[in-house]
Write a protein that binds this DNA or RNA. Sequence first.
DNA 1: GCCGTTTTCGGCCCGACTGTTTTCAGTCG
Length: 578
Amino acid sequence: MKNKEVAEIFNKVAALLEIKGDNPYRIRAYQRAAQVIEALTTDVEELAKQGKLERLPGIGPDLASKIKEILRTGTLSLYEELKKEIPPVLLTFLEIPGLGPKKVKAIYEKFGITSIEELEKACKEHKIAKLPGFGWKTEENILKGIKLFREKIGRRPLGEILPLAEKITEILKKESPVENISIAGSIRRRRETVKDIDVLITSTEPEKVMKKVVELPLVEEIIAFGETKTSVRVKAGQSTIQMDIRVVEPDSWGAALAYFTGSKAHNIRVRELALEKGLKINEYGVFKGETKIAGKTEKEVYASIGLPFIPPELREDRGEIEAALQGKLPKLVEYNEIIGDGHVHSKYSDGTASLEEIMEKAEKLGLSWVAVCDHSQSLKVAGGVPVEDLFKKKRRIEELNKRSSKVKLIFGAEVDILSDGTLDYPDEVLKEIDFVIAAIHTGFQQSEEQITNRIISALKHPLVHAVAHPTGRVIGERDPYAVNLSKILEVAAQYGKALEINAYYKRLDLNDVNARAAKEKGIPLIIGTDAHFIDQMEYIHLGTAVARRAWCEKKDILNTLSYEEFMNWLKKLRANSR
DNA sequence: GCCGTTTTCGGCCCGACTGTTTTCAGTCG
């Protein structure tokens, strides 16, 4: 998949053109193209071969030929030219909060500054304030921005921030005069990482709400304090995260919620549609001339331009507008339709919970089954289960299942795919294990061909049901291993094997785009929390969120099956694999 | 640079806030 590389070059070209001061619409064209390509569920290379690039929205003759150039040469002549004109380090300046393309350009052209250190020095020596359009406050803000940049306050995993955001809204609900309150922004869309916390409120006493916000003990710094908009930095683990609170009139609730939920790209498309109908949409409502015709609910806002309600998880301009127009939006799998957890570790390997504790937790979470998939024998660092213990575990699960009517445990194993592509238990053992999910935990440095072939041979193994965390990425820590995912998807589809949506907040693997590609190929998906501590079973909804962002319906997700249905699916798959 | 029941040029989403200004540019979401 060259999709990422192509998208990255287009994004960089867009940023360089911004600093250059090029036509903003040309810049947007590159940004949109990058977004479209990144969200593709097919190989851009494949589309190029078939001559179908220009069928993609936002890709015309020029960008199509530029994509082909990147695929052919690995780079883009325009990009190389731009890099000669503008030092690429300036792109990192754009990541400093408060610095945009115009200011970066001015600073570079006046002082030739090409490193963060030089920029910091120039601010401290008050050189920057002398530039036209700059002042002492700007200098101060750049220095603050540099500090935040150095603390690497970029995007944080959703699983870290969502609980904090929910806690804050709970406090505000209880202790201040709010009528309506909702989390908005990328958290509401359930993006895998988020940059800030957006909270939308209606209240008849906004000043009291805002006062309560800035008095929260979690608040470390007040960035802006107004009656309708307040921005603060709140403590989040080791560092801080920005939180924007906005208060609107109840009549604007829907319009504001839609607006602040985004994504930006989705909003732009919605507003373009409105324009075609002679309407104007802003955060206060939908307007025909001076008259407001909608705005109280999101449903009303969408309806005003002839669209059904679009779930927040889909609002990324990845085809949801077109689907909505044609009445072809998927009926997304619901959070409460997930009644099983496909991947949990127990004390038998490196988990901390006993089987009993897992059962108890599952009941609390309203689940009806849990597949207990401990590591296999050779993964010693993770307490891989030796064969003799495996059968103790099997008997124990059978006993517990007899006693419990509400929750059933499934005897599973997360079996290592060894460096040579063979599995970490012999076949006569594997066939006794009810659910075999194979995974790679070693040999990450192997070539794309080696790793891809390892996974393919596991998928082809008649006793394997699924592959766990298929790309191996860990958000913010480790890139995916080199793997040809298109080939994996092809084989999984051909053999009817399942792929995991790992719900651990740092994995979320498959991610939304890849899970959507799998869904489109008819590959069954199974959500597993990969819990090693009992409370991590609560992350199951993060996996559901990925599935929803992947346009999945109930039928696409194995976790919506009852215990009996899932056991049948497992048996049938093996019967057909013989 | 894309796009078209306003088809091959002239559009391209919208508003708030900040800081530097004296009417507005830049940044952000």
